[in-house]
Design a protein around this nucleic acid. Structure first.
Lengths: 207, 207
DNA sequence: AAACTACCTGTGCATTTGGTCAGGTAATAG
DNA sequence: CTATTACCTGACCAAATGCACAGGTAGTTT
C-alpha cells in the first residue's frame, strides 16, 4: 500500500510522454520533432513534459532506451544446442513477430541508423558487433559440421535481419501494395512460414 | 553552341542545391532540414537557394523526383524470356549495385516510407502496386511451369528488395559491425554472389 | 549601346522553437 | 495541523526559421 504511491503519477505521465514521443520522433525525426507536439499528443502542457524530462534530447534518449530494451528482450537467441533448423525457426519467428507486434520500435531504430546512428554509435560498436561475431561463430560451427550450406554467416545474419524487419519498417509500402489497411493475424504466420521455409532451403537444411 | 547557354548557371546551381538537399534531408528529415543548412552545404546564400526553388517543399519534391528517376532507371527488369535463373541474377545484381553506388537514394526513399510515405502515397498506389503485380505474375508462370519452387511471389519480391536495399539503408550499421570505414569494390561483388546463390537455392533453381 | 532577361543577395519579419521560471496546488509525513 | 515534498503550468524569452522583397549585377539579344 505504502509501496511507492508517490511515483504513480510520475510513471503514468512518463509513459504517456514516451508513447507520444515515439510517434512524433518516427514521423518527424529528432530535429523535426517538437516538444509542443509531443505534449499535444500526450495531452499535457508543454511545461509538464519538460518537468519530467529536462529537454528534448532527454526524451529521445528515453525513447531509444525503451526501444533497445524491447529489442533485447524480444529477440530469440541463436544457440548451438538448438541445431541449425530449430535455431533458424526460432530466430526468424521472433523477429517477424517483433516486426508485426512492435513496428514502431523497429522504425525509430531504422531511422536512427539511416540518419547516421548519431545516438547509437556506441551501442553498435560494442553490443551489436559482439552479438554478430558470436552468432556468426555458431553458424560457422554448423557449417564445419556439414549441417548447413557453406555460406558467409555474417551475410546470412544481415539477410535475416533485413527480410524480417522489412515488414515493420516498410509497413506502409507493403500495405499499400497489397491494398490493405492493416496487417492481420494470419499475415505474420504467412511471413514466418515463407521466410523459414525459404531460408532453410537456402541453407540446404532438411533434417 | 547557342544550345542553351543561358541555363548553364541555372543547371549547375540546381545540381549543387539538390546534392546538398539530399544530404540535409537524409540526416534531418523533411521537417528537421533547414533551407539555411542546405544553402551552407551548397555554398550559396540562402536567398539564392530560394531563387531557384520557391520553397522548402519544392526542393524536397525535386530531390524525391530525382530519386525515383534513378530507381526507375537502375532497376533491372524481370522479364519472362530471361527465365528464372537469369532474371534473378540480373535483378539482384542491379539492386545490389544500386545500393552500393547510390545509397543516398535508397535512404531518403526508406525514410519517406518509414515516416508514412506522405509524399509518395500516389507513387506507391499506382506505379509500385502495378509493378509488383506484373512481376508476381511472371514468377507465377515459372512456378506453374515447374521451373522454380512454389513460393508466394509477392513475399519473394519483398525478400529481394529488403535484403538488397539493406546494404544501402543500414550502411552505417553494417560498416560499424564489420569495423570498416567504407565499402570497397569487392564488397558489392561478395554480396551479389551470396544473395544470388542463396536465393536461387531457396527457389530450387539449378538449371 | 540600349533593352531585356537571368541571376544574385542583404535585410526584414512574422512565426515557431527549446527551454526557464515564478508562482502555484495537491499530497504526504511527522 | 504543519512542514515538506511532488506535481503543475501560464507567461516569458532569445534564437532560429521560412520566406518575401527590393535593389542590385552580369550576360545576351537586337
Amino acid at each position: 500500500m505504502t509501496d511507492k504511491k508517490q511515483g504513480k503519477i510520475r510513471v503514468k505521465s512518463q509513459e504517456k510522454i514516451l508513447d507520444a514521443a515515439l510517434d512524433e520522433f518516427i514521423t518527424h525525426g529528432y530535429k523535426g520533432a517538437t516538444v509542443q507536439s509531443i505534449a499535444d499528443i500526450a495531452g499535457l502542457p508543454k511545461a509538464n513534459v519538460l518537468y519530467y524530462f529536462k529537454n528534448k534530447e532527454n526524451i529521445y534518449h528515453a525513447v531509444l532506451e525503451q526501444t533497445l530494451d524491447m529489442w533485447d528482450q524480444g529477440i530469440g537467441d541463436i544457440i548451438y544446442e538448438d541445431g541449425p533448423k530449430r535455431a533458424i525457426e526460432k530466430f526468424v519467428t521472433s523477429k517477424v513477430r517483433m516486426s508485426f507486434d512492435h513496428p514502431k520500435s523497429s522504425k525509430i531504430y531504422a531511422m536512427e541508423i539511416i540518419q547516421g546512428a548519431q545516438h547509437l554509435k556506441e551501442f553498435a560498436r560494442t553490443y551489436l558487433r559482439q552479438w554478430v561475431r558470436e552468432k556468426a561463430k555458431v553458424f560457422q560451427q554448423w557449417i564445419n559440421e556439414g549441417r548447413m550450406a557453406n555460406v558467409d554467416p555474417v551475410s546470412l545474419i544481415f539477410l535475416i535481419w533485413s527480410s524480417t524487419q522489412h515488414y515493420a519498417d516498410f509497413e506502409t509500402q507493403i500495405l499499400t501494395i497489397m491494398n490493405r489497411a492493416d496487417y492481420e493475424e494470419e499475415d505474420a504466420e504467412h511471413v514466418i512460414q515463407f521466410l523459414t521455409d525459404f531460408i532453410l532451403r537456402g541453407l540446404a537444411i532438411d533434417e
